[in-house]
Each structure stands twice: as structure tokens, then as C-alpha cells.
Amino acid sequence: MITLTINDIRHDLDLPADMPLLWVVRDIVGLTGTKFGCGLGLCGACTVHLNGEAVRSCQTSLDEAANGEVTTIEHIGTTQVGANVQAAWREIDVPQCGYCQSGQIMSATALLATNPSPTKTAIEDAMAGNICRCGTYARIRAAIQFAAEAE
């Protein structure tokens, strides 16, 4: 039995220790906002926060997350920074297909939580791991700057 907290709710899970957190969240806990894109840590679609840090949930085993605090896109708006980021995303109207956007928002929130006014380079470093096939990058950048200014 592995215990972890997801979006403030405690889960006791009888699952293989090597099962990726991504599939635990999506298929067992039923939170489908976190997305599967590559399964190899290459695209960032599956980004969640584990103990406040952005991680690729497809590369994080249940074991590694044991006793941790996981936050997903469904819950990120309950944090001040997360709410600001979502408000910025809405203001700039970032999403196109939207599939990558959960991951983008989780990465952006983790960045702004530790670095409230990031430089262009800091934004590039933090967001380079999140692919957007629809090419919303200019708006992502603008939304991060917008959220930073709102702080």
C-alpha cells in the first residue's frame, strides 16, 4: 500500500510501485486534466507538482511520489500563483487545441512560485521542456510575463 496526497485528498493505493504517477492520476484517481503526450519525459504534457516542484509524472514512479503532496491542474487554481497564471492564460487567450496547456500552466506556475519576475532566459529554460504542437509559444511567453507583472 502506497500513500500519497493528491489535491489535498489522501489516497491509499494498492498498485505496482513502478506505475507512473501519470497513469495513477489519470486512470486510477480519475483526474484526466493531466495529459499523456510521449511517456518519455520529452514533452511536458504530464507535468504535475510533487511537493511544490514541477515533475514529469510519466517519469515519476508511484514509489517516488510515496508520502508526497501532488497537485494537478484541477487544483492549481487554489494556490495564489496558480490562480494568477490561469487568469493570465485567460487574459491572453493562450490555448489552441489545449492539449499541452495543463502541462504549460503547471510548468509556468512552478517557475513563478520560485522566481516571481523571471527574465526571458529564465522563462525559456523553464518552458523548454513543454512542447506545444499548435505553436502557442508567443502567447505562453506573454502570459507568463503578464502573470509576473500581476504579482
Binding site: T32, E74, R90, V94, P95
Partner: peptide, 19 residues
């Protein structure tokens, strides 16, 4: 005008095929 699907897509509520 802002897209009508934006809120769903920034809160994880939009349902894609895989969901």
C-alpha cells in the same frame, strides 16, 4: 472575442478523446 473553450482548457476540464 475570447475563445469559448479557454476556461475548460486551462482548468483541465476539457474532455479530449483520451479522457
Amino acid at each position: 472575442v475570447r475563445r469559448l473553450d479557454t476556461i475548460q482548457k486551462i482548468t483541465g476540464r476539457a474532455v479530449f478523446g483520451i479522457d
